[in-house]
Design a protein around this nucleic acid. Structure first.
Length: 512
RNA sequence: CGGGGUGUAGCUUAGCUUGGUAGAGCGCCUGGUUUGGGACCAGGAGGUCGCAGGUUCGAAUCCUGUCACCCCGACCA
């Protein structure tokens, strides 16, 4: 007998605990979500990954429409002068802007193509890192009266931020996102909008991505450049780091002032509009991966999966092949007639002439919620073998095909809830109330500094509100305040670092 | 932009010290046996060894330059 390996073979290597960043890359590769591109910092989003993004878009779009928003599209290019309009905004984005300076190529003296010196733009164009400025300039033309308000617009588009250290989905130079931009008559209304859209994100991430979040406000140092207030939702992924899953900004009158969004009020005065902006991006795909995937690959919450059920026909003998395929297709048809989350169940029959094991493992790595095998033995019994992706790989269950059809939605819902519960349990287990500086430093210091193990988590600790403390902690531990959480009953206390008064606990963590 | 490292087939890589113009595993293709946990047998395709120059009869190997990428620091959805 050969030696049993110490740990079961996993589809993804290394495992999460061995090397989390490398595991993440391998999951993306194994699940065929995306490829790194020849252009540094950019990615090719493959159909399986794009399918997930499309489902995110579809669901969020419904939610935006339901809260009164409409889609529009604004230019990719922003005149350089627009970027200068809001001082903090310029400072925040200047270091990561791609700039277009020419509008033609020609052949240079060395015989190679180059931007034609004769075709230099009189004013350089910035590829949008976000669209506040150009949308603001447009809104300034649209708004004259309080009757023109509110303006509630969203756009789906790509943006470019020239990042030093790209990582697929998490931090790419070009990424896809959604940016909402609204103008309101009053501060109260704009603040309500800011909070409403954060709640939309929280609901979406909880109910569709099965990820629990802390929602709250950013500290001043983490605020969006130019915003008065930045709200966010913060998730914990499996290496216990925090990741911002969505943000909503109350911009006050800063961008209105910069862009000249002015309107006549009900009592005849001229007033600046109150604006908001809010966004979430393809980063959520990365968040989803790091939140739920395991050592065998991706694990998709059913509500966001491009395919809910994959049927794998097992056809060992030639004479039963046709009958097995027919049974598989019948089952698929029955399942497709069921509605799930407002549209038909997505069912794939994998008829490729490959071994059952090979096919199964491919779907495991892609994270399909339910796998169903139909083989010759099932033709008479009417059974199918069902495996849930949230259960161990070999936990196959034989059930009557008809029963499975009846219970499919129930099982998917059960997977959805199980993934959420699992993620919440993980987060709660790694969220610690911390009362002293020593405890805090201990929590965020790995046992093995040369090759840090997965450690830390969320620390709920009192903070005196000073920027100095934030900077000290960041430089000592790379830990930052992820948010000042919304809480019904703030618990007063004293800062664990300075002993000064603290109005409430804040969430600290290492972050992506 | 500072410090360190690496470039050989789609991926992981051997060979480099001691020059003799490429080998493996996985993947891919063909045929067959298979198919209910990643199968097997046989055959096959794929590399101007990052790029440019130099030394040499001869360079993946030695020298010079250059480019790219990775890791660690400052920035970030």
């Amino acid at each position: 007998m050969a030696n049993q390996p110490a740990v079961a073979k996993t589809a993804i290597s290394p495992r999460r605990e061995e090397d989390f960043p490398e595991w993440y890359q391998q999951v993306i590769r194994a699940a065929e979500l995306a490829d790194p591109s020849d252009v540094r910092g950019c990615m090719v989003i493959r159909p399986w990954g794009y399918g997930i993004w499309e489902n995110m878009q579809r669901q969020l779009d419904l939610m935006f429409k339901a809260t009164g928003h409409r889609n529009a599209y604004f230019p990719l290019f922003i005149p350089l002068s627009y970027m200068q309009k809001e001082a903090e905004h310029v400072e925040g984005f200047a270091k990561e802007c791609a700039v277009v300076t020419h509008h033609r190529l020609d052949i240079g003296p060395d015989g190679k193509m180059r931007p034609a010196p004769s075709a230099e733009l009189s004013e350089p164009l910035v590829v949008r890192p976000t669209s506040e400025t150009i949308i603001g300039a447009t809104y300034a033309k649209w708004v004259q009266s309080y009757r023109d308000l509110p303006i509630l617009i969203n756009q789906w588009c790509n943006v470019v931020r020239w990042e030093m250290r790209p990582r697929v989905f998490l931090r790419t130079t070009e990424f896809l996102w959604q940016e909402g931009h609204t103008v309101h008559e009053s501060e109260v209304e704009a603040r309500e909008e800011t909070r409403r859209m954060l709640d939309v994100y929280e609901t979406f991430v909880r109910d569709h991505l099965a990820i629990p979040v802390f929602s709250g406000e950013k500290s001043e140092s983490e605020r969006f450049p130019g915003a008065v207030q930045t709200l966010c939702i913060e998730a914990m992924v499996q290496d216990r780091k925090a990741i911002q899953a969505g943000t909503s900004h109350f911009l006050g009158q800063n961008f209105s002032r910069a862009s000249g969004i002015e309107f006549q009020t009900r009592d005849g005065r001229q007033e600046l509009g109150w604006t908001t902006s809010w966004g979430m991006s393809t980063r959520l795909v990365g968040t989803l991966i790091m939140a739920h995937a395991d050592d065998d690959g991706l694990v998709l919450p059913p509500r966001i999966a491009p395919t809910h059920v994959v049927i794998v026909p097992i056809t060992p003998k030639g004479e039963t092949r046709a009958a097995v395929h027919a049974a598989a297709n019948n089952l698929a048809a029955a399942l497709r007639s069921i509605s799930y989350g407002g549209s038909p169940l997505e069912v794939e029959v994998d008829q490729r002439d490959l071994g059952g094991g090979v096919k199964n493992w491919e779907w495991i790595k892609k994270g399909v919620p339910l796998r169903v095998e139909i083989g010759p033995r099932d033709l008479e019994s009417g059974n199918v073998a069902v495996t849930r992706r949230d259960q161990p790989v070999k936990s196959k269950e034989f059930v009557l095909a008809n029963d499975f059809v009846c219970r499919a939605i129930e099982i998917l819902d059960s997977i959805q809830h199980n993934l959420f519960d699992r993620a919440k349990q993980f987060r709660d287990a790694n969220t610690r109330i911390i009362e002293s500086k020593e405890e805090f430093y201990d929590f965020f210091t790995p046992k093995n500094p040369s090759k840090p193990e997965i450690h830390g988590g969320f620390a709920l600790a009192h903070w005196d509100g000073s920027r100095e403390v934030e900077e000290q902690i960041k430089s000592d531990l790379k830990v930052t305040i992820r948010c000042i959480p919304f809480t019904g009953t703030p618990e007063r206390g004293t800062c664990v670092f300075t002993g000064a008064a603290s109005p409430q606990r804040v969430v600290w963590a290492k972050a992506y």
